[in-house]
Design a protein around this nucleic acid. Sequence first.
DNA 1: CTGAAAGCGCTAACAC
DNA 2: GTGTTAGCGCTTTCAG
Lengths: 351, 351
Amino acid sequence: MFRVCVFCDNRLTRKENVTLRMKKVSPTIRDVAVEAGVSVATVSKYMNGTQRFSPAVEARLKEAIERLGYRSNPLARSMITGRTRTIGLAILDISNPHFTNVVKGANRIALQHDYTLLLVDTEENQARERSLIEALAQRVDGLIVSSRMPDEESQWMLDLNKPLVLLRRSPGLPIPSVGIDNRLSTYMLARHLLNLGHRRIAYLGFGQARINDERIRGARECLDEAGLTLDVHDAHAPTAKAGEQACSRVMLGPQRPQAVICYNDLIALGFMKEAASLGFKLPRDVSVTGIDNVPYGEYAAPALTTIDIQSEKMGELAMQKLIDGLAGRSDAEHSMFEPRLIVRESTAACG
Amino acid sequence: MFRVCVFCDNRLTRKENVTLRMKKVSPTIRDVAVEAGVSVATVSKYMNGTQRFSPAVEARLKEAIERLGYRSNPLARSMITGRTRTIGLAILDISNPHFTNVVKGANRIALQHDYTLLLVDTEENQARERSLIEALAQRVDGLIVSSRMPDEESQWMLDLNKPLVLLRRSPGLPIPSVGIDNRLSTYMLARHLLNLGHRRIAYLGFGQARINDERIRGARECLDEAGLTLDVHDAHAPTAKAGEQACSRVMLGPQRPQAVICYNDLIALGFMKEAASLGFKLPRDVSVTGIDNVPYGEYAAPALTTIDIQSEKMGELAMQKLIDGLAGRSDAEHSMFEPRLIVRESTAACG
DNA sequence: CTGAAAGCGCTAACAC
DNA sequence: GTGTTAGCGCTTTCAG
């Protein structure tokens, strides 16, 4: 018993016949081969541009593919080639505009090289992080990972057997990475505030971040040189909400600071909003700075003084490094972007 | 000639031997089968929990898998099952916090159902949109798509042969969708402004968006009832930058509005910043509203009055619909979220 | 230039 | 309970 092929009006084997019962099927390389009267190998070579063809065959192939609407199955292809043309990107929180920009930059470069981005948002959830990334690693050619896990606990990443790029400095791991000079960032901010005449300077950090210590160190170094000490506080999350919540603790305590360096822009934005609610006039009563240069610091009131860490460029470079690695041009170094101070209205001379 | 298996100390066929030359290999189901002294079918069933086993076999499997660090290859699995446990999400611009929230919501539900998210950011690029989405469709079980393409030109989406959910109302397409009541949104905003005593009300839209017309209509309807007309302007992009650029045109023209309804929050934020630069006091000189309720409208000055369109819930529902569809519980309807007015400080009584 | 055939790593009948 | 076997859709030698 024979049936007519839904695609090509040719006869089918029993197995192919089954296909007809499925709701919707895509034509396979065999359908094209039959339709064009060539072998599957020929179709494959044509699809991959591996070879040249006689005009006759080429025309028939072209038409058959067009008529059937054939698109080769990337999964089957990947099984053989071992490559998926997909890159995994694991970030801590897509809600944070810093990471949004990283994604944007990474995505742009990926697209340029015909890679697709597989995104995983670990939602700052340390527990799930590892299993999510391990699952991700199985479906991609390489990964870019942002994680809070200490280097010593990140050895398992090496067992993923996939090219990796980290979004942080990781001296303890033989993995290329990109990041920013955190120490210099806060050093610059502290210097800026000292120049404005501030003496009582506080730092509102986020202790769970691996880079928090570096940021504290930078600010401390700068203040030390001036014989001052840094008043360190902690927000419980790297978010605006957390900045709001921490504000009264910082501003209504015994040692009210003249200026506050925040771990990032989100905390700074929340801090400023709450400070205004508490009746402080900014920047007159307190200068505030962030780090990241997220797009909306510019639209806050007062507009936020911050450090541009070039998030988008960071994503671009991370992706470029990974793709280079995939192409054999390995580069196991750490690349550090230079922080750039953006002075806006949230910092002013101490009065 | 025999060689010893890197994983299991057992003998290898010629083919398996080749494997040794590759840089890094992952063990296959066969390695596990050999190591545990069972058949590949048994390993497969164990991995999928399809069946129960004798304690002896189970123990050996467990140990072999552990020792080899075996993880089953999802690609090979997908080839057979026809499912990838991956959902594609195509959005217009990850930089827009509205979409960020959609991603967040969609991702959360996907994770809950053990799906992974494949993200494509079309970057508002109409030309690449189609090919990007077609490529995406090949690697996923279903897609959520946000696009500016008119329904009439979106027929090709039906040929993707994949379950789909659209992030917009598409009466011309037999595809389930989620969105918001755009007409009601601007109607509510206009009503709010009328209540505050404003009479000269402008709309700063984004003409390329499919929903722009609906938003105009809503505001018009409301003003009509009061015998007023809407002054319509256009921004060239749905971004803060574009809002800034459009501001002087709106505010320094002959018919200066008392209130401006912006297409979205980003345009509104840019507009407010520029208006302040031009010397206007907000909201005294002009009331401004946005739509989307992006997280940072709250931290702008003045804090932005807006419409909450529940972006994150939208992402959640879109994903839930898709997953339901994948599970056979189809639901081809359009779900509309109710707009909710959030009054902050950017709108005030007309003085 | 074109085709035949051997699998990639895994699952799904179907035997035993 | 466990094993055998036939492919999923495609690429890739290797002949002709």
